[in-house]
């Protein structure tokens, strides 16, 4: 069954990304697809602060944030039952990290088409 874009479930998404241009593009791309964006949070502390008061449908995480790993955010998302995907240039970084290694990585530069399709699927299953 095919659905028109208007039937897709719109999601509230937390974006965690330290580069301002990549964050800007990601935010606008997600917004153009109709999603609501929280962030971009640029630091682990900023993302953790946001998750104190907000509960997004899903999160998109860069892994290396000014040299700090996003892992504490990933662990909190696990606990909260919020699915997340990664956008990292560094596969080695992810492989060695239990909090991250099970998650899908859309890489850098990020394949946004694939990312949006994956988010769409997430909306269909209703998390």
């Amino acid at each position: 069954m095919t659905e028109s874009p208007h039937d897709e479930k719109k999601l509230t998404l937390l974006v965690v990304e330290d580069d301002f241009l990549i964050g800007f593009d990601l935010k606008r791309t997600l917004q153009e697809a109709g999603h609501r964006v929280i962030g971009p949070a640029r630091k682990v502390s900023e993302a953790l602060e946001i998750l104190k008061t907000q509960s997004p449908d899903a999160a998109i995480l860069d892994v290396n944030l000014y040299g700090e790993r996003v892992s504490p955010v990933a662990r909190l998302l696990h606990v909260m039952g919020i699915p997340f995907v990664l956008t990292s240039a560094d596969e080695d970084f992810i492989r060695g990290d239990d909090a991250l290694s099970a998650s899908e990585n859309f890489g850098k530069p990020t394949d946004t088409k694939r990312l949006l399709a994956s988010l769409h699927a997430l909306g269909e299953t209703g998390r």
Partner: peptide, 18 residues
């Protein structure tokens, strides 16, 4: 440097896209 290069490409992609 591989990581940085990918990041820079991602930035350029963001500019082209926006």
């Amino acid at each position: 440097s591989r990581h940085r290069m990918k990041n820079l490409l991602a930035v350029v992609r963001a500019l082209a896209h926006q």
